[in-house]
Amino acid sequence: MKIHLDPRTKLYFLLLANLLLFFHVDTKTEVMLTILFFIPFFFSERRKTGIGFGVVYVILLAVEYGMVFLGQSVLQNFVSMVLVGIRMIFPCLITGAYAFSTTGIGEFVCALRRMGITEKVIVPCMVVIRFFPTVKEDYRQIKNAMALRGIAVGNFALLRHPAQSLEYILIPLLMNANNVAQDLSVAALTKGIGIKGKHTSMVQIRMKALDLGYMILCSLPFVLFLGGK
């Protein structure tokens, strides 16, 4: 069964995950909430990602418990703190991964519009999503071009002359970025991106009962923790 949650619900998860960090919640509450965050993964196309995250989380928990009782040399505490640190930002990572991997661009844009965010931020966001993959492709082309010219060949060549390498990679990349910016502007303008008045969305988003229910369910452990404090 597939369940599709509203992007704003996912945003709420993200906020909750952040609040966990703010309020120093105890591990019990954190684990409960994390489990709740995991569940939507299993009703999406990203089941495998969910399982992966779950396994790592359990391992982190286990290792941490083992470490804390072992002793307290500086090194041990240091390692253990790093592990705790990673585990603590895990709820953020999970909710982030869920929000990122299960939200379509159309939905994302529609949600931003519904939340009243200005087009001045939405348009650049759309362009970032559009252009991001191009950067990777460009980089590959530039690497090829450099190899053919015999510039920075070899494993650590880029690090041997960092400033030079940065120049050789960034300049063609940015030159191309300028061209793309112009072409995209032309394409978008002729398709009416600058028309004043309301822009509609083909993708529709709607808060359903399930969204609300799940949001309340996720708030519960948190409220209980704050209440019991």
Binding site: E119, K120, V123, P124, C125, M126, V127, V128, R130, F131, F132, T134, V135, K136, L173, L174, A177, N178, V180, A181, Q182, L184, S185, A188, L189, I193, G194
Partner: peptide, 16 residues
């Protein structure tokens, strides 16, 4: 609009 698109493109490179 063209400014916003340019900003988007540079932001993408910056994000990389």
């Amino acid at each position: 609009i063209p400014d916003l698109i340019s900003i988007g493109v540079y932001t993408a490179v910056y994000f990389v």
